[in-house]
Nucleic acid binder design. Structure first.
Lengths: 347, 347
DNA sequence: ACCATTCACTTAACCGCTTCAGTAAATTCA
DNA sequence: TGAATTTACTGAAGCGGTTAAGTGAATGGT
């Protein structure tokens, strides 16, 4: 099946390829008669012509492609998008991009960081990078001529655009909520704390709240591992091993909160009666869990929309680094118990 | 920042662009001296040259791009990938593709079906279509020159490759499992039954199992809606309204099973004591639920890997339609109770 | 009525790369 | 040793578009 090209259309319509191009792109500076325009469209229809975007990109230097790099959530596992968080984010990105005539070029991060090359050799019009990466590999992105949007990465830099949430406030809200409900011994359950990641900020918020109440962080209450259901499940056991007496836990991801619930239940402990839990993200699964998870809400879709919008803006000539921070809020559900002064429990 | 091109490299290395091209692609039919080869690579390094894949694709007619079309799970919602099923599938696809030097061009289905054009104008090397679509829109894909892989679509056609699971057997296994546990009044909870979709097959399996036990389908036990947690939750209420006496339910997706659990609990009914449930898919969330969900396992990642492999094969010249069906099995967890003859319950 | 515009198009160069068809020198073979 | 082959390259066409510059004819202004 031969690819029909612009020449075929030109021949069919009895005009030059230039004219066809002008008609197709409705080039504003050029005037084409209505009759010719119609003839061209007619030819396009009869030949069922579709422009080759590769060729078009070659000259126009515009690809209408946005590169998206999404991390593995667990090292070694290939299922990076299995985490619903990324699914929702990617959905919003895809939808917004498509609404604006863009498509997505998707990639996980290669060990050899070839995702940088994607931006260069595919000539994407922009690139969205989700999650935290070693800053040295980010440095390589500086040589790029296209706008780069970092999602959920904390990095001091005045070239990359960033979009994120107020993670520190989120951590504070979560912890404060537990404090307000009478809890004083609050565990901190999370994946590893990296320099550029969100966990560090949430941890700072955790400490902020403790400080508000004149408390200080107790290292025995820190449970750091990976952002996975299984790790969180094991934390329940670890709590017992450490002989800790925490009455509540702040889990920095809903998945962690859910794993923790499961782990506790296995040991015969109940949520929230024996341990109150606040999660983070407000994924769909948070309300599906039993008990449903009190959590910090963030607007994931809005994050995705903003990421695309920043690139769209940049493509439209808006200059200067953009830095957007979306709000967070607490969603009260059923995983936190009120610890009355007497030590009695009221859910 | 000027794009450095092959000419710059040629000049730097003191050779022709042809030679550079041969070195870069290691064209087998051409012999280049080691010294020249080294000079070219040296030039590539000093200039930090990255080939423009757009230009390359233009001549070579190969893009190393695989188009992926993933449906919205709920009409009107933009979050098509939020369903963990698609996340896992997409992950496997992306990973396998990247391992083989391909990238993914991602798109949701436009109302105007422009995803067909993606295949044509972006000149992807293949296209993977997930989920069921109206067969007329599939017909348009026939004009494509690239291999098309349909995932989870039942369509009689000898052009499209297909990859799926034995949905009918899955439905049968699920239902039979309930029957084996003494259940006779078994609800069928699912999204809408479409011509090409998987639900229809699962429904047939449901009936197969009933027939095995000399039972026939009772229309009162059919609950059809959308594949969503919320719908399933409402089914619990609907069951009461209908005044039905089912002791078990086969939910054609894990999300439905989970929603059903939640809905029942809201009404003070317990799973599995009051209603036993078998789900489908064996998503991560199935084991996270409480009670954990007995479900039909399918290897989602394997599905994704196969989809890519089919395209890779076709690109390598393997001809003929491929049709792969992956096995299913039942995973026993905690959502099914044994209904003893006396009517007593043993979990 | 004459020059300046505007209109409606076309010609041709170019985007960055691949690849066919050469070509001159070095090597092999009889 | 001369012809045939191989080696190591190069020139130029072409992939399918876009776009700057150019060209007649029609229109406008005075």
């Amino acid at each position: 099946m031969k690819h029909v090209n612009i020449k075929d259309v030109a021949r069919e319509a009895g005009v030059s390829t230039t004219t066809v191009s002008y008609v197709l792109n409705q080039t504003p500076s050029q005037s084409i008669s209505p009759e010719t325009t119609e003839r061209v469209w007619q030819a396009v229809r009869t030949l069922n012509y579709v422009p080759n975007l590769n060729a078009r990109s070659l000259t126009s230097q515009k690809t209408n492609l946005i590169g998206v790099v999404i991390p593995q959530t667990e090292p070694g596992k290939e299922f990076m998008f299995a985490n619903p968080f990324y699914g929702e984010l990617l959905s919003a990105i895809e939808y917004t991009a498509r609404r604006n005539g863009y498509h997505l070029l998707l990639s996980g991060p290669d060990p050899d960081q070839s995702y940088i090359n994607i931006a260069r050799n595919r000539s994407v019009d922009g690139i969205i990078i989700v999650g935290s990466y070693p800053s040295k590999s980010l440095n390589e992105l500086h040589q790029l001529a296209v706008p780069v949007v970092l999602v959920d990465t904390y990095v001091k830099d005045d070239v990359f655009h960033t979009i994120g949430i107020d993670d520190r406030l989120g951590g504070q809200l979560a912890t404060r909520y537990l404090l307000e409900h009478g809890h004083r011994d609050i565990a901190f359950v999370s994946g590893s704390v990296s320099e550029q990641g969100v966990v560090q900020k949430r941890f700072m918020g955790y400490m902020d709240a403790l400080n508000e109440y004149g408390l200080s962080m107790n290292e025995k209450y820190l449970y750091l591992g990976t952002v996975s259901y299984d790790f969180a499940q094991s934390v329940a056991e670890e709590m017992r091993l450490r002989g800790n007496r925490e009455t509540a836990a702040f889990a920095t991801a809903d998945i962690l909160g859910m794993g923790l619930i499961k782990g506790l239940r296995r040991l015969g402990r109940r949520v929230p009666e024996d341990l109150s839990i606040v999660g983070f993200d407000d994924l769909d699964v948070a309300r599906m869990s039993d008990p449903s998870l009190t959590t910090i809400h963030q607007n994931i879709a809005e994050k995705g929309r903003n990421a695309v919008q920043i690139i769209l803006d940049a493509a439209d000539g808006v200059s200067g680094k953009q830095e957007r921070i979306l709000p967070v809020s607490i969603v009260e559900r059923d995983s936190v118990a009120n610890l009355a002064p007497q030590g009695r429990i009221n859910t």
